[in-house]
Design a binder for these strands. Structure first.
Lengths: 207, 207
DNA sequence: TAGATTGTTAATCGATTAACAATC
DNA sequence: TAGATTGTTAATCGATTAACAATC
């Protein structure tokens, strides 16, 4: 079992995939699975799954496979998703509002606790906890609510600047929906969601 | 220059990234760039960029670098995004409706031309071309409009079944927002967007 | 010309897979 | 026990990078 810093990021990136596949198997009523079955479902070799898991410990039984509930518990612990993470949304356009109300987050351990914008027209709109707040309240809000994750849904031409504000306010993980590459300090993590890039990757293969 | 089938998918996956970075440079007023500059902006080595591009031809000039407009044109041609692709959205929930109205698609060559659902309550709602259609009209619609790309925004528990319908109706590229791995024939391409997976990948690194 | 940068080769690096002893 | 599957090692495979001749 290696120390945290030794584990390749590409391995970390597959753990959520495994977790998702396990959820699916549970919904189908299974309680036990094998690296072979998981691999088949995900289009990954069974050897790779066993190798990936072996970075963190031994979670299976020879001859039997993995008890799904146990493996889920372990993976959630490793990924630190065995608790609820508060997040904010920055940018209250169509996308930002859709993200703020998306039910799929809270089901899987993430809760949107605040929405921010700098547009006076938008501040104050919306309801309850998700009433749009002034971006100038950001620092206070983050400290008060212990938030370290933000979803960035602002136009591309201001994304870097807003990103800098977030980082200064203590955000350490950014899910970026703006179609630009962000420059951040080493201790800040960014993941990108740009549907157009995925589409462009597929059109290459179309006749 | 290799034939199409020889080029690794991981290289194809980076081309949209290059295209996006070039857009950004243009907006900053540049007309020329280098592999070094592009790499710096993307956090990729300059050697990798040159190697990737070399799969398709020679697009630069020694001593000078790349004329951005020319490289954009070439990359768009390679990815087949030098034209407008019609797409449909399947699933008219919050997410589906947000996708249908997202302005970022048409700016970059993709146009939502239809929205489908199987829920009688939803069919007929919405306006204009994006009035929600009955999923049973799918096959006719796709053939009539020559659509081969779909965005899938239905609940996870019906996603595979809807996916099968799409494939049977001639869809060859699916952008899947449902949090499950889809099983499709070899000639069908799937890309996955699951924000929760990205979030789970980042929480691993948070203290 | 001198400086800069490409396209490409060869070396390195890291990830995936095959194979199997251990063991449930 | 016999069959199955793990965890792990070593081999293979493929991707990245360093280096440089070519040349603008």
């Amino acid at each position: 079992m290696a120390s945290v810093t030794d584990i390749p990021d590409i391995v970390i990136g597959r753990l959520p995939l495994y977790l998702r596949a396990l959820n699916q198997l549970v919904q189908q009523g299974q309680t036990i699975t094998s690296s072979h079955e998981l691999g088949h479902q995900l289009g990954i070799s069974s050897a790779q799954i066993r190798k990936d898991l072996s970075h963190f410990g031994e979670f299976g039984k020879q001859g039997t496979g993995y008890q799904i509930s146990h493996l889920q518990t372990q993976l959630k612990q490793i990924l630190q998703v065995n608790r609820e993470w508060p997040m904010i949304v920055v940018g209250a356009g169509d996308l930002g509002r859709a993200l703020a109300h998306y039910g799929g987050f809270v089901e899987r351990g993430f809760r949107v606790v605040g929405v921010f914008d700098n547009d006076v027209q938008k501040i104050g709109t919306g309801s309850g906890d998700l009433k749009v707040r002034d971006i100038r309240e950001l620092i206070d809000f983050l400290h008060h609510n212990n938030v370290r994750i933000a979803m960035l849904a602002v136009p591309g031409n201001v994304a870097q600047q807003v990103c800098d504000t977030l980082v200064n306010a203590g955000v350490r993980a950014i899910l970026n929906y703006a179609p630009i590459t962000l420059i951040v300090p080493e201790n800040v993590h960014v993941q990108y969601i740009d549907p157009v890039m995925h589409l462009q990757r597929m059109t290459y293969y179309l006749d």
